[in-house]
């Protein structure tokens, strides 16, 4: 999906003069060809993240739409204050492209996991936040940023994720229904999509009709549209490869507490802790109860309880 996003930006950059891409010594092979084609529109600013974000803000002030590409910790954590003051406070057209969402990089170690990035990103007013589920959503997010001029953070996994949407999306800012259902709604974002769709299938075999909704735009969250799609559904379950207490589920819980106190909402995600387990992504999902089997059995138990 990283290639779907970046290739869309590069393609546009070959046609337009106002786009500039900064990498922070990351993305092996991603920019090789582009660096040759448009050496005047690409810069590797090395292992210096505060400077990279500050420079991106300056280039935006000089008239460019800037894309900063790096792994998530280096576009959001190491340089949080630069993102806050230089980009968001100044309302500049900079898109932070963060790679390695959730446990994409497992078992590289905790330093490389992005399990709290949405919590961090949601503290920043003016920051539009996307968490695409597949290359199609990633590409649509890229197109959205190319047409706009707002500070944006895009949470991507890595490469090789399967395509879920076979057709282009009409509007990536709206919740996207992947399956119709009436007993329960599974609301998710990001590449946990595979587990969610498989859970939907398992639930179907159990006779449970689950609606499946992808929410690629996390901020500003299209809650009203989501609310409409959830009409008549008794149980909502959020699923995300993110700390359970600071991501989408938490956001919906806050909203529903004020607006839909009768919602039955259950949040599935990663227990907030420093991860010492050494496992690949599928192992981590099993460890934190985020596999399709876990999701299906959790949903089943909720419905039984209800």
């Amino acid at each position: 999906m990283r290639n779907a996003f970046i290739d869309t930006v590069i393609e546009e950059c070959l046609r337009r003069d106002d786009i500039f891409i900064i990498s922070g010594d990351a993305g092996l092979g991603v920019f090789d060809e582009f660096g040759k084609q448009r050496p005047d529109r690409f810069l590797n600013l090395g292992v210096a993240e505060q400077n990279a974000i500050g420079c991106a803000a300056g280039m935006a002030l000089a008239g460019f739409r800037v894309y900063v590409y790096n792994i998530v910790p280096f576009v959001l954590y190491r340089c949080y204050e630069q993102v806050r003051n230089d980009i968001c406070y100044q309302q500049l057209p900079v898109t932070l492209v963060g790679i390695g969402s959730g446990f994409s990089y497992a078992p590289m170690g905790m330093t490389h996991y992005s399990v709290e990035d949405l919590g961090v990103a949601q503290t920043l007013p003016n920051l539009r936040v996307f968490s695409p589920a597949d290359p199609t959503e990633a590409e649509a997010s890229a197109r959205f940023t190319l047409a706009g001029s707002e500070p944006t953070y895009v949470r991507l996994a890595k490469r090789g994720e399967p395509r879920v949407h076979l057709d282009a999306l009409p509007d990536v800012t709206r919740p996207i229904q992947l399956a119709e259902g009436r007993d329960v709604a599974l609301v998710f974002h990001g590449t946990v999509v595979g587990e969610v769709l498989e859970a939907h299938r398992i639930l179907g075999e159990m006779g449970v009709s689950a609606k499946v909704i992808s929410l690629p735009l996390i901020n500003p969250c299209p809650i009203d549209q989501l609310d409409e799609m959830l009409e008549g559904i008794g149980q909502v379950v959020t699923i995300e490869e993110h700390f359970v207490d600071s991501g989408l589920g938490c956001r919906l819980a806050l909203w529903s507490a004020a607006n839909r106190p009768n919602w039955r909402l259950s949040r599935m995600g990663i227990k907030p802790e420093y991860v010492h387990a050494v496992k690949k992504q599928e192992g981590m999902r099993a460890h934190y109860s985020l596999t399709s089997a876990h999701i299906a059995s959790h949903v089943r138990s909720l419905l039984v309880k209800n």
């Binding site: 500039f20 500050g54 420079c55 803000a57 300056g58 000089a62 460019f64 204050e81 003051n85 230089d86």
Partner: peptide, 23 residues
Amino acid sequence: VSAGSLGHGFNIGLGMAYGFKKR
């Protein structure tokens, strides 16, 4: 440039200077 936390305006300035060069 908005500034108040130290060590920000300098780098923003570098980016602006580079942007002017590129344009």
